[in-house]
Design a protein around this nucleic acid. Sequence first.
DNA 1: AGGACTTATGCTCATATGTAGCATAAGCCG
DNA 2: CGGCTTATGCTACATATGAGCATAAGTCCT
Lengths: 328, 328
Amino acid sequence: MSKVEAAEWTMGAHAHGQTVGVGLNAVVIAFDEAGPRVLLANAGEDGVSSLPSGPLEAEHRTLESGVRSWVERQTGQPLGFVEQLYTFGDKSRPGTRRFVSIAYLALVRGTAEERPAAGWADLYVHFPYEDWREGPPQAACELRAALARWTLDAAPAVRRSRLERVEAAFGREGARWNEERVLERYELLYEAGLVAESARDRGVGEADHDIRGPGAAGEPGANPASGWPLALDHRRMLATAIGRLRAKIKYRPVLFELMPDEFTLFDLQRIAEALSGVRLHKPNFRRLMESQGLIEETGRLSVHTGGRPAKLFRYRPEITMERPGKDE
Amino acid sequence: MSKVEAAEWTMGAHAHGQTVGVGLNAVVIAFDEAGPRVLLANAGEDGVSSLPSGPLEAEHRTLESGVRSWVERQTGQPLGFVEQLYTFGDKSRPGTRRFVSIAYLALVRGTAEERPAAGWADLYVHFPYEDWREGPPQAACELRAALARWTLDAAPAVRRSRLERVEAAFGREGARWNEERVLERYELLYEAGLVAESARDRGVGEADHDIRGPGAAGEPGANPASGWPLALDHRRMLATAIGRLRAKIKYRPVLFELMPDEFTLFDLQRIAEALSGVRLHKPNFRRLMESQGLIEETGRLSVHTGGRPAKLFRYRPEITMERPGKDE
DNA sequence: AGGACTTATGCTCATATGTAGCATAAGCCG
DNA sequence: CGGCTTATGCTACATATGAGCATAAGTCCT
């Protein structure tokens, strides 16, 4: 850094007397018999859980190592795959110290017993309307209806814009559901006051204490269909993570970061479905997996299928993934 | 934020006596007759330019507004489309103050005359090997050769891994070039010591002063084919931006953020080619554009084509872009 | 005016890729 | 043994992508 620049920066920071806190947050995803899971740190006094997180420290050589360190310190869980998600830094209320939060996505392998950490929660408890594996969930229908009211309540000028956003995010009348638009949907619900955080962040009567899960129905601005809230803007981070992950599994072999050493093709499909929240066509999924050359048969069979035994596969990490390969 | 958490954070930051500087950086892209351009702030005393940037300040309500404000303050250029790119925060040398840099990508419309800012530079001056519009550039051939030497020089254990990375980034022997892997390529060159920044960041004899462009040939670790360096890690940010943009134009209508109000289909194609760095098949590009419904004819014709007049089109922003629409 | 040249525009074809349905195989359990 | 389960393989179809060629409608030169 040139002297000029360093001086300018220091001045900039000091001239306005601002000290900025830099935080690291992790959305840690795993999968077990119970389905897709997310790792949460202990719930605060208000009963609202939060993502593992902590401030950036001097010892952290890189941001990523800082994230690993905080997650392990808070939950005992070592991390495998880690990737940066997004940096949040909007000013909250005036007068408060500013925080910049750098959010990461992490994936860990292994069954529930093999994972050291406690604090794993069902992913879709926080996003019930995102799970379409058993068909259109009731939560999505309710929210769509609530959003329709929100659209109609608007002044005519903004009505059209709202309608378009709702349709883009939730799909037109039962038409195709785009599972990747998780963040878009969350932000729409937030804006429409349909998630608990909307009311909380507006500082509605310090009513925060009552919002601790599905029981909060009927609260002003809350809605059970929209799922359990998390502390601060952590649910926004989680929405960002899910959206990114749902997009990424389509063009990068990240699925294997969640798999055990040996697995059947249907195991793989179940995880893909759990993350994307939609059902997949079995033969097509198989063909795709087999054509990519990312996996190979181990020669053994799984007998716990309930029907015909399935071939067991393993991941071939040596394959450099020549795919269309968008990197980032 | 709960009291517990706030206390913990403050302690965390203070216990280690670390003050973190948070910087905002912008990669601002435009397009004119001369081709794709990037906006640079004035060159420092060492002759190395840098991206518009400055510290996050208390007045900035959001990170994005902070970026807009800094770019306009430093270059006079107001920004249109802005999107977060990546946050860099690895510790540089021990003992120095830590900086977290949040990089943004921005696109601005208009010809060279319409744009207020000075400081626009040719994008590919910084990445000569990324411009394949006139076929495989010489720079890419030279770098491939240099990387081959770097691969062979390695210990046998790492040789295979290096070879695979080089082939994934640069394509096997003249085979398909994946234009999106800009960052992967830059990082490989950095690691191999083929860009000026590698030597500079290792602190090689304070030789920084001599690195100011193509003239630096023969410097230890430098290479004219790898392009002009920028200050700090700004070329890494630029590589990140180009990669992201090249991927994004394929599934989101960002191209129009660079276009004037009226344009021909070939104008559009020229910009797509300039950004992606490869030639496109004209009839196919037309078909794609016309099938997406994102543009409409204005009814007028352009007579400056040199041949048959071309229909003029305009962008239809009212179309909500129902495409597969990965959001982010 | 006529021909050469330029660019725009439209069409066809072969090849991937994605979607959906059906048939068969091979285990289980009563 | 028949009925259940799940695994596995194949085919038909729609759609997207990539490449080539023919024609249209201007300019410019002679």
